[in-house]
Write a protein that binds this DNA or RNA. Structure first.
Lengths: 234, 234
DNA sequence: CCCTCGGTTCGGCGGCCGCCGAAACGTCGG
DNA sequence: CCGACGTTTCGGCGGCCGCCGAACCGAGGG
């Protein structure tokens, strides 16, 4: 069975500030080099190297060596989900952001961000509840695409679910909104499509996301959602 | 935002074998005394006391002082979910049970067990898939009770969802079956009802559960599920 | 072919953390 | 009122772990 030791070993991987910082950064879904992560966390390259070794050995990350670079990435969507779940529990306990820059960053993240491969923040929650109001997503009995919803996703976004252990629709608890937003295959497809269509655009280097003018129009047309184009610049 | 530090602090709570063992034991949903947990983990009472202090301070556990006893319990269903999710990730990595007693225990747990407040193991998965086959639970688009399912739960089990942040139906990944079983309000109600009706009974002291003869009959009548009455005694 | 640069390995240092035993505290029972 | 018992507090001990710098390795680039 799941002995305490196995659980403790897994938790120990995330129980270090530097490693946790790495994982949080990797939540943007991209592959980072060892050096980038070291600089981000403010530790020596050697230290970062050791941490990455442990995270990879523990199965949380996968690596791809390319020339003299070592790219690492979250091993699977499930890992991202686990990190978000942990984050949702960790957030409530105080820890207000300090300093102007931190506040601005936090505000941008709260407005909209990618959560590994789908959308979160006010943006993600607004889309999710709009899907619910239109009867495309069942929010009352759980979290599932209705037959209407399945048809809508196919017609409007060209989405066809692939058979997989990954659920089509899944609730992901939002740590800023304290409400669930759409994750799973459908959530990932929605984000990738919106990005591809230029409806959303990254805001600087982080996970923050803003809505473009065409995105504002598209959401209004498709779902009747009225959201302002990016309040803050860049 | 969720800084790495907050996440690391939370993970650190579970990064110790003894604390992890405590939490796993508490997954049965009952309240344990400090002494019981100390004996279970094989540590001195003083050590257990310190661990419990940290777990309570971290918000994972709540305590209730009664006379000279200190009862602790998981703070919320969300905590149980988090632990199960972590367990699901931790399990895959090797760690076969060793010894006859351990094997027997593991087998009993794999057959059926409570997962905080709902059913898991082969029993939980079988019920879940039966609900799906009968069109009561939508498994294709996510995890939600259909309107038929909502009616069935009310008629057969007297279940009415209460307005709450807790989802009515939720998928909980099973670490033995590698498939999802029903959790959330509906899952919890189902288990409590089955227990109340004497359809299931605890197997010894742990979380393991067996199906009683009347339970076998009931499941067959209600859902057409044919499961043997407890294969192993007690 | 050498130089640069990203990454790794290794030794060593410092601090944190889990453990225990001893002593103290409060509750319960007789 | 006294003894038993569950729990807590406090030192103190040992080990693990995260950190760094220095040396090393290998891939590119000029």
């Amino acid at each position: 069975m799941t002995t305490g030791a196995a659980l403790a070993d897994l938790a120990a991987l995330l129980a270090d500030r530097t490693r946790a910082q790495f994982c949080l950064a990797l939540l943007d879904g991209r592959a980072w080099t060892a050096g980038e992560l070291a600089a981000l966390a403010g530790v020596a390259p050697s230290t970062a190297s050791e941490h990455l070794g442990r995270l990879v050995a523990g199965g949380l990350l996968v690596e791809r060596r390319q020339g003299r670079h070592r790219y690492v990435q979250l091993a699977a969507p499930e890992v991202a989900q686990l990190l978000e779940d942990l984050g949702a529990h960790a957030a409530p306990r105080g820890a207000e952001p300090v300093g102007l820059r931190a506040v601005a960053t936090t505000a941008a993240l709260a407005w909209g961000r990618t959560c590994y491969d789908h959308l979160a923040g006010r943006l993600g929650v607004a889309i999710t509840s709009a899907l619910g109001e239109r009867g495309l997503l069942d929010l009352t009995g759980g979290f599932a695409l209705t037959t209407d919803g399945m048809a809508w996703f196919r017609a409007e976004l060209g989405f066809v679910p692939v058979p997989s252990r990954r659920p089509v629709a899944r609730a992901c608890l939002d740590w800023t909104e304290r409400r669930s937003h759409l994750a799973g295959q459908a959530g990932a497809h929605l984000r990738s499509r919106m990005q591809h269509n230029g409806w959303i655009a990254g805001r600087g280097d982080g996970r923050a996301v803003r809505l473009t003018p065409s995105g504002t129009r598209a959401l209004s047309d498709l779902l009747g959602v009225t959201l302002p184009t990016a309040a803050t610049p860049t």
